[in-house]
Design a protein around this nucleic acid. Structure first.
Lengths: 196, 196
DNA sequence: CTAGGGTGTTACCGGTCTGTAACTATGCAA
DNA sequence: TTGCATAGTTACAGACCGGTAACACCCTAG
């Protein structure tokens, strides 16, 4: 009765979820473990019983983000079963929606900007997850029957990545407003050229 | 009359230069003022005699970066006087060179990722300087006789921005390798369409 | 020579950070 | 009931952070 909060989930899940949100909003070095545990309604000892270190927590947060992104791809397939071109356009719409979601960029890109030590554990998983994402987009382009699928996928991915940092620096009214127009134009252009 | 021998630049210049380098390499929150002054061969008191605070130093570093970038544009004009299209291609080559320079992205984008407080003094100058950069590229495209100059400029700028974060996340062997090909293709494509 | 501005040195303040120790409280299961 | 895993509490260690005070130094202008 008196407790109506989200105390239903287990401390580990609450910590992970809260950390994801706070890292996203305030950056990784801008949030301490004390603030995370307090916001998660638990305490520091419990955090360190579930995670080896803050770096470990960071890595788990990045993996959780990637898992959520993976679910997005499954949603595309569910919405347009077999229609790969429609799924590609869905990706463009979803990307545009993320641009307007909040003024923060990609969590992995932001993490890479903050964690500069070359052997930081997060850098490995960032590279791994970004490469997996790229592979997915390349496959989607190829299955959509587009020639030079790699080039289109890389171009779209660079445009999106650039748009995300653009909203973070100059805001949502900057060059990123043209993202959909650019992306759709590119898809049309690549569809026009014969495969090869 | 008094000046002449510059065997060693003044403390303020050394601090500014050192801070620019260290912020670039290790991020802003990853470097303390003690480390900066020590690397600059001076001490903390001297830093605080020339800069109001670390935030003030950050802003001055960003402005110094922008000034250096401004010199780049003048170099284009000096190398290809009046030939705006050649200057645009020079911009593409210069951008590609920056991608391979080191694995770090744009200092302003990285600063925006780190400094999340909405009213942080650095955010204002980042927006101001990025908008100035964009205006320069738009003007160059327009003077090069390209129709839809804004759209080309924004597309190129997003591609470049995306390529910089890409090298920072997956490395220089990722999608950013195709940057020149993408950019040149876009310029050709936009030149083909009639102005209007 | 002298005065003074720029610089260097040392020590310190109050705060925050990650991470740990020791102990207590709770809930569930045999 | 007993036993054990999980979670909460308090306190602390050790390091680092941005920023300041007080004072000694040196070079040069006058």
């Amino acid at each position: 009765m008196t407790e109506g909060v989200v105390e239903r989930s287990r401390p580990r899940d609450r910590i992970l979820e809260t950390a994801r949100d706070m890292f996203h909003k305030h950056g990784i070095k801008g949030v301490g473990v004390d603030a995370i545990t307090e916001a998660a309604g638990t305490n520091k000892m419990t955090l360190y019983r579930h995670f080896e270190s803050k770096d470990d927590l960071i890595v788990e947060c990045l993996r959780a983000n990637a898992a959520k992104a993976g679910a997005m791809w499954e949603a595309f397939e569910a919405e347009f079963p077999g229609d790969k071109l429609a799924q590609l356009h869905a990706w463009v719409r979803k990307a545009a929606a993320m641009l307007n979601a909040d003024g923060r960029g990609c969590d992995m890109a932001n993490a890479a900007a903050e964690l500069t030590e070359p052997d930081h554990p997060a850098r490995l998983v960032i590279k791994e997850l970004k490469e997996a994402q790229r592979e997915r987009l390349v496959t989607l382009c190829r299955d959509a029957g587009i020639g030079q699928a790699e080039l289109l996928a890389d171009t779209l991915s660079l445009l999106f990545e650039g748009a995300r940092v653009s909203v973070q620096t100059v805001g949502a009214e900057g060059p990123s407003t043209q993202f959909v127009r650019m992306a759709e134009g590119l898809i049309v252009s690549f569809r026009g050229t014969a495969a090869g």
